[in-house]
Design a protein around this nucleic acid. Structure first.
Lengths: 114, 114
DNA sequence: CAAACATATAAGTGATTTATTATATAAGTG
DNA sequence: CACTTATATAATAAATCACTTATATGTTTG
């Protein structure tokens, strides 16, 4: 037992949060690269409000945090979260999702946010 | 990286499955003790069909398995599941849930299934 | 400061989920 | 073999969820 415990109710909420393909992929990507909303919109081929809503949920639980950079809002994993260790452990089981970002770079869409 | 990877779609399904308080608690309990349906009905103070349906979902993904013992069906964790390592890792973050079984024993309801 | 861009929020809708009630199946018991 | 107990399945209702469209907020730029 190396980590602090998370009560069942909170653990359930975190797992439910990650039990969505879009959000889980987002978090996996954020584990290696910060991203802005517009990049996720491209990656997931969905509407901007849909992406914003997913990020909101992740933010409400402290899983991600945001920093404004000009007109962009950059999202990143919140390493100070009490759930960060659990999230990290889960992410280790997932294959790298960076090919999504590679695709963006090819299209010249990644640079737009940096 | 000590474990084999789980593709994003399957990982999402497993996390969604565990993102329910009843199922997550069930799995945590099963990690230390096999249980029958009637015990879960007592523990969760819910209907028998509701419990059966949760167990069905866990079984469909190979997380749990069942063995009939007389009129009872005993559920246990399926250690052969490809998701077992992930599930184990997650369970480590949860506080022990055995107090639920202790309660049953007090009421003399635990013994009934063994 | 008006126009354009990036993001958030609100309202509404269809799909999914979890519970309930009713019923079926299967085993044990007098 | 009827009755009870344990469990599963089916149908359905209520709650939740993730999307869409419409609109608001905030920043940059000409």
């Amino acid at each position: 037992m190396h980590q602090t415990l998370i009560d069942i109710t909170n653990a359930t909420a975190i797992l439910k949060l990650l039990g969505d393909k879009t959000r889980l992929t987002m978090v996996k990507i954020l584990n290696s690269h910060d991203c802005c909303v517009c990049e996720f919109v491209e990656i997931f081929k969905t509407s901007q409000p849909a992406i914003s809503q997913h990020l909101r949920k992740l933010k409400d639980f402290g899983i991600v945090k945001e920093t404004r950079r000009g007109q962009w809002i950059i999202y990143s994993l919140n390493k100070e979260s009490e759930y960060y260790p659990l999230v990290q452990t889960i992410l280790q089981y997932l294959p790298n999702q960076d090919y999504n970002l590679k695709e963006l770079e090819k299209q010249g869409l990644r640079i737009s946010c940096e």
